[in-house]
């Protein structure tokens, strides 16, 4: 079952690489024009295209890229000649660090809030937590970030931008990336919290919960011991989706906090038509998405024995 999923995942990466290649081919303008920008003349364009090998037909270029990628060689960035593995290496680390940091804040918060909201459903607390979370997600990310900077950085509590280098200690990193992580926390919490609440409440009308209630168990115990384990599958799925978002979708937060992550790299590469970089980052993103979904499915199956014996 897992082997099949893995095979499907690899097939999916292949489709993604085709889609991305096709889309970048359709983009108006090419790498040579982007590099030369306002300085492009027909003569320099031709010389640069020749240098970069842009004159080959599209299928040839795709094949060149694919055969390299299959042997683990993603090539060099076309626009500045640096090896892609080097370009991506540090940024991938940064992206994963920020995603995990935000998840470490957001997952416990949303689980606790969601459980409490389900426990005290329709109370003032429930409504207030719900309205608060909805308000937080209805502001654009950059706006949330600006407000946090206004409150927490201009007062001197936290730095307004992230300046990390290889010598930064772990503690400093935690401190410096707090604002971006908090921004992302505010962005993803509502979704997970609402799902937790809904999944638990969905079960509250089940006969076995009724039974537990009649036995006189405390509401907290009913929610934690009886409802939650059965509600885990949808919750895990939504956590996986949000983790995937934290890895792939945070370009705006990266820009605001000057955080060198993969999102900014991808946007830069798209606007420069640097297709080798675009492909590599897209594959990392797609890979993260596939892996997280796979893990979520496995975990849901483990937490729910009935799913394990379904077939």
């Amino acid at each position: 079952m897992i082997a099949l999923r893995l095979a499907l995942g690899i097939g999916l990466l292949f489709i993604v690489s085709l889609i991305i290649f096709g889309a970048t081919e359709l983009l108006p303008g090419d790498l040579a024009q982007q590099i030369l920008g306002q300085g492009a003349t027909p003569e320099t364009l031709a010389a640069l295209r020749e240098q970069l090998g842009l004159n080959d037909p599209a299928p040839v270029r795709y094949w060149n890229w694919l055969s390299g990628a299959l042997t683990g060689d993603f090539g060099v960035s076309l626009s500045n000649g640096r090896p892609i593995s080097e370009l991506i290496g540090a940024r991938l680390g940064n992206t994963v660090f920020l995603a995990l940091y935000a998840a470490a804040l957001a997952v416990p918060i949303s689980l606790i809030l969601g459980i409490l909201a389900a426990l005290w459903r329709n109370s003032i607390f429930d409504r207030a937590a719900n309205a608060g979370a909805l308000t937080a997600i209805s502001f654009p990310e950059f706006f949330v970030a600006y407000i946090l900077v206004l409150w927490l950085a201009q007062t001197g509590l936290f730095p307004s931008m992230v300046r990390i280098n290889p010598t930064t200690t772990f503690g400093d990193r935690i401190y410096m990336t707090f604002l971006p992580a908090l921004t992302l926390t505010l962005v993803v919490t509502a979704h997970m919290m609402r799902m937790t609440r809904a999944a638990i409440i969905n079960l509250m009308a089940s006969p076995y919960i009724e039974m537990a209630r009649l036995k006189g168990l405390s509401p907290l115990r009913i929610v934690l011991r009886h409802a939650l384990p059965n509600a885990l599958a949808p919750i895990i799925n939504v956590i996986a989706l949000n983790l995937a978002y934290l890895i792939t979708g945070v370009v705006v937060v990266e820009v605001v906090f000057v955080y060198p992550g993969l999102g900014q790299l991808m946007v830069d590469a798209v606007s420069n038509r640097d297709i080798a970089v675009v492909q590599a980052v897209a594959l990392i993103f797609a890979g993260a998405y596939v892996a997280l979904n796979l893990i979520a499915d496995v975990l849901s199956t483990i937490t729910n024995p009935r799913l394990m014996h379904r077939r």
Partner: peptide, 18 residues
């Protein structure tokens, strides 16, 4: 030299002394 593309982020960096 730090590249800060977002105008508000640039302002904030200046105001906070970064």
């Amino acid at each position: 030299l730090v590249s800060i593309l977002d105008p508000a982020a640039r302002l904030n960096a200046l105001i906070t002394g970064e």
